[in-house]
């Protein structure tokens, strides 16, 4: 090809667009992290536009129909890595069983972005402010990674290893995300805080899934799981908080207890979007709001 890249003015970078997953995995195995896997490109393009760098070699996954599918089973839904936010938000089973995922997909950028942005890209880009990870953490999602060596699954909660680092190996691609349907008697509470109501990058976001035990006495927490954005180097679950709430009556959880647990779980910073103090305080408020919602949903309050 003799065309010149309009951005860099250089001959075009290698742009590989395989039509089968096997070919994609071979390419990944050959070039490992020297080739950037791309899908919707809604985040990468912003970075490329801001810098003067030439485009890196890319592995374009957009021709792989098998990665775009969304399949509902009896206990879970499996979402292909390149399924778009828009397709997730309008999927009837997801809408019925996983309402927080619909909400987070609808809060990801603008409608135009939602049409291109993929769930896999939102995970693999590994931004601590990404919109869908908190919900995936709260629902207890599992990731399926593939390479020429085979396929493995991993708990999403353990996937993020550090700022912009994940446990994916250099030869692996994320192929799907499996989200289990929650148990009965759960309250799902998701809130993204971004100062404005649309097209915001979160200052903090929280997803909570609180499962009640409506025994003879007052409702207690059987299980509570959480996911947070923008309060640490990676999307964060809150294991201390989950542990500390287990078995407690919903009406007897006080602020200090939540504050203590979250102090161990979260690591908010001051940055260009907000302050650590604001994030810490709002995190507590959102947890308390989720507990209130669960209490109000319980038959005996």
């Amino acid at each position: 090809m003799s065309a010149v890249d309009p951005v860099s003015g250089q001959p075009p970078a290698p742009w590989y667009r395989p039509v089968s997953l096997a070919d994609a995995l071979s390419a990944r195995a050959r070039w490992r992290k020297d080739i950037v896997a791309i899908a919707g490109c809604t985040d990468l393009m912003v970075g490329w536009n801001a810098g003067a760098r030439r485009l890196p070699p890319v592995l374009d996954l957009s021709a792989l129909a098998e990665l775009r599918s969304i399949e509902a089973g009896p206990d879970s839904v499996t979402i292909g890595a390149t399924a778009s936010c828009a397709s997730i938000a309008r999927h009837p089973v997801i809408a019925g069983r996983l309402p927080m995922l619909v909400a987070s997909a609808r809060q990801t950028g603008s409608v135009a972005i939602q049409n291109r942005a993929t769930l896999g890209g939102n995970i693999m880009n590994a931004s601590p402010a990404a919109d869908n990870p908190p919900v995936l953490l709260a629902y207890g999602a599992r990731l399926t990674l593939a390479s020429v060596r085979g396929i493995r699954t991993i708990d999403y909660a353990s996937f993020h290893a550090g700022y912009k680092r994940t446990l994916a190996e250099g030869d692996e691609l994320l192929v799907s995300v499996t989200v289990p349907f929650p148990a009965e008697r759960v309250t799902a509470y998701y809130r993204k805080v971004g100062t404005r109501r649309a097209q915001a990058i979160s200052k903090i976001a929280m997803a909570a899934l609180i499962e009640r035990d409506d025994g003879a006495g007052p409702a207690v927490v059987r299980n509570a799981s959480f996911g947070f954005a923008s309060v640490g180097p990676v999307p964060l679950p809150a294991p201390s908080l989950s542990r500390s709430l287990r078995g407690l009556p919903l009406s007897g959880i006080d602020r200090a207890q939540v504050e203590r647990a979250l102090a161990a779980d979260l690591a908010p910073l001051d940055d260009i979007r907000s302050t650590a103090a604001y994030r810490r305080s709002v995190a507590v408020n959102l947890v308390l709001a989720a507990i209130d919602a669960a209490r109000e949903a319980a038959p005996r309050g």
């Binding site: 971004g194 100062t195 404005r196 109501r197 649309a198 097209q199 915001a200 260009i272």
Partner: peptide, 8 residues
């Protein structure tokens, strides 16, 4: 990062 209001 410089937040202007949206129609919403």
């Amino acid at each position: 990062n410089y937040i202007i209001p949206t129609t919403a």
